[in-house]
Write a protein that binds this DNA or RNA. Structure first.
Length: 467
RNA sequence: GCGCCGAUAGCUCAAUUGGCAGAGCAUUUGACUCUUAAUCAACAGGUUCCGGGUUCAAGUCCCGGUCGGCGCACCA
């Protein structure tokens, strides 16, 4: 089958629907257009035929007549899913459907496989994820969610550019996997004869750029974590990280609530949304509570990083949680928080003042050296963002890394190692800086009102098919 | 990694207690000059996910496997 190499399209279905909304029933516009798209439906009625064509902007009816349309008999034999280019006049049929009266048309691509389901779409999730192209064609909801993802990313970029941020790219292949607590993927470089790790976070590189004098930087990109799959976890996911010199974590919290609610308005036109049947408001300001406050309220007694090991341990053990001997009160408090509070945080909230023990890259709190100036924002029971006043002191950073190294030696596969190169960077001088990370996939899930992360990733990670 | 659930025509789904494998849409053929998921008529379409087992008889019951969904664990 030979198909043309080009088609001179000069109109889109969605634009035509708007431009000719005024056209009366049975009226002809006199305007000739060239449109292209996929044939979604075809209804023949003797020497007339009505088709529904979809392009990237919407749908419009194709109105073919044996006396007007070239190769009419071939036109009515088009298959659902075929791509066509059509030239003709914009008209509204007697029954009131805006149409292009097909004068000339050409087959642009044949669909050898099609789906008879005009109303159920494709329900087989395996097929939907492995052949997203078919899913996009058959299921409007899929297109909606993936388009929203693109809209969200554009909205962030535009807001960041407007805020004076520089977009940068940092290495994905790293000698150490650091900047977060996670197990990495490993790979190998042949000529360098070296193992590399896929990045789990760009954090340390970005702070080095701040050391270098870029006061506002961001990176929007993929990170890779070698962990289990779930409706909320894909091994590769998209993270927005940004750093601002001279800010602290309070400045960053204000930025987060303003930016996230602003992005919601950019893409949805509102901050008032519904997620899985339950409403919430993303409008700023968001509630702020310390980790100790929330955990105390949840367990019914005062707890903090200064509580005894025994007290925190027993509260965890009462709840059938496991407790490691190597954990201090900071880790115990964080575990207790996650166990008792996290899933109940429906409306947007900043949880603040995380223990130093679980925050190896965050600056110590100005009022309590067992805590850090850190926040995590939560909504619908999930973490949406994480940020802090950055640790700028190279000596303290070395101590934190040494603590991490001890955990690693004790068997913690997610602990960081000592990154001498990064400590040297801090010795050049990192100004007071606040940093932020936002999981874009999860935010898109929230805005798109979908419960599975795979619905917002075009080609999610799946188990390879055997034989 | 563990537990529960699922897989039947190209697509969406039925199939009673273990008793002839079915429908709609799509495809193919025909009718139809304003349809809207058009309608009407006819034809065709099957490794019931894969491999074993029980039984006179298995889509259905049992065992093993593959892939997926959900939950747990890990994490964002």
């Amino acid at each position: 089958m030979t198909t043309p190499y080009t088609f001179s399209q000069n109109a889109y279905a969605g634009d035509l629907q708007k431009t000719y909304a005024h056209l009366g029933d049975g009226e002809e516009s006199g305007a000739n257009v060239a449109i292209a798209g996929r044939v979604m439906l075809l209804r023949r009625q003797g020497k007339l035929a009505f088709g529904t064509m979809r392009d990237s902007t919407g749908e419009i009816q194709l109105f073919a007549l044996s006396q007007v349309t070239t190769e009419f008999e071939s036109f009515v034999k088009l298959h659902l899913g075929d791509w066509v280019g059509v030239r003709g006049e914009v008209v509204r049929t007697q029954r009131g459907e805006l149409s292009v009266k097909v004068a000339q048309w050409e087959l642009l691509a044949e669909a050898r496989h099609n789906f008879g389901e005009k109303w159920s779409g494709i329900a087989d999730v395996d097929l939907r994820y492995r052949h997203r192209e078919a899913d996009l064609w058959a299921n409007p909801e899929t297109r909606k969610a993936l388009t929203l993802r693109s809209d969200v990313i554009r909205a962030f970029r535009e807001r960041l550019w407007a805020g004076g941020f520089l977009e940068v790219e940092t290495p994905m292949l790293n000698v150490m996997a650091t900047g977060a607590s996670a197990r990495p993927f490993t790979t190998f470089h042949n000529s360098l004869d070296s193992d590399f790790f896929l990045r789990i976070a760009p954090e340390l590189w970005l702070k080095r750029l701040v050391v270098g004098g870029y006061e506002r930087v961001f990176e929007l990109g993929r990170v890779f974590r070698n962990e289990g799959l779930s409706p909320r976890h894909n091994p590769e996911f998209t993270m927005l990280e940004l750093y601002v010199a001279y800010w602290d974590y309070k400045d960053m919290m204000a930025f987060v609530e303003e930016t996230v609610s602003g992005v919601a308005i950019d893409v949805l036109g509102t901050t008032e949304i519904t997620y899985q049947g339950r409403s919430l408001s993303l409008a700023a300001p968001w509630e702020k509570k310390t980790m100790a406050e929330l955990t105390s309220a949840a367990v019914g007694e005062d707890v903090s990083v200064h509580s005894s090991l025994e007290k925190l341990s027993s509260l965890l053990l009462e709840r059938n949680a496991t407790v490691e001997k190597s954990w201090g009160t900071g880790r115990l408090l964080a575990e207790l928080f996650e166990l008792t509070c996290e899933t109940d945080l429906w409306d947007p909230i900043f949880v603040t003042e995380h223990p130093v023990e679980v925050s190896p890259l965050a600056r110590r709190h100005r009022d309590d050296e067992a805590l850090t100036e850190r926040f995590e924002s939560y909504a619908v029971g999930r973490e949406l963002s994480n940020g802090f006043s950055e640790l700028t002191d190279p000596d303290d950073q070395r101590k934190r890394f040494e603590d991490q190294a001890r955990l690693a030696a004790a068997g913690d596969e997610e602990a960081m190692g000592i990154d001498e190169d990064y400590i040297r960077s801090l010795e050049w001088g990192l100004p007071p800086t606040a940093g932020l990370g936002i999981g874009i996939d999860r935010l898109v899930m929230l805005l798109a009102d979908v419960s599975n992360i795979r619905e917002v990733i075009a080609f999610p990670t799946l188990k390879p098919l055997r034989d």
